[in-house]
Amino acid sequence: MSESRQSEFVHRTLGDRIYQIVVIVMLLLAMSLMIIPFWNVVAVAFSTPLGSMESGVILWPRGFSLNGFQIIWKNLGLERAFLNSVIVTFFGTIAHVFLACLAGYVLIQKDLPGRRLLVGFILATMAIPGELIIIPLFVVYKNLGLLNSLFALILSGMVSGFSILLMRNFFMGVPFDLAESARIDGASDFRIFRSIYLPLAKAGIATIALFEMVGRWNMFLPVILYINDSSKYTLQVVLRSLVTENQGNSGTSMITPNVQMAGILIAVIPLLTLYPIMQRYFVKGISLGAVKE
């Protein structure tokens, strides 16, 4: 290993060095494409209202102020929306992960009559994009009296074939003998599931939970579909009306840029704090995401 590393260095020619420089310049360009817009948001968010409205490029807060955060949080009602998003994300993720684990466990029972049918029933739903059934789905929610409730948002996307498939694959990695000997000792399936499978599939659970949390926090279509009552709006929907309206056409928005950018920061901070944990489950999560998108 160290030998091959060494030979790599010995063999570096002038061409290789130029290539290395080109590569780093390219990466720095790609990074600045991500950092500059975000940095602009941060700088404006911490500016004073007047400072944020002055013309010119803002890459440093103009007259440091937390005014934007105070206004959007208290006066414009983002606090309530934020709380709604937390509720939907928290309970929705727990229910989603729990159901995916249950189903994943049942689907690995090789001797269960009708198992193939169940697998087919669940996997086939993966071919049906949720966006395509929004209209009849809206009618179903309406008939069940679920409109205008946070429960509707928790229910939306609560079961997903992708998560079930992923959990099933994780559970298949748990030695079957372990469950078999517990069963001979008289343990029930639910007990085996809870005390053997769940602890051994922690990585899988974490992966689904993290990606589900991000998805739920960013949830948009179900909210505009099922919620009319503004006190039940989630963060994304409230933020949308504050940041996108008026902007495309003119600068006549009544809301100053520092308030808008503060709202954006509030919406991304929970995700950014989640990121370091997510990174640990990257590869698995990415492959989940890859089939999910």
């Binding site: 948001v41 960013n218 709202g263 919406a267």
Partner: peptide, 21 residues
């Protein structure tokens, strides 16, 4: 990781006719 609301808000500001970067 960003939602479309966040991305839209961010870029609409950066590309705004006046005051945008």
């Amino acid at each position: 990781l960003f939602s479309w609301v966040v991305i839209a808000g961010m870029w609409m500001y950066i590309l705004a006719p006046s005051g945008g970067l």
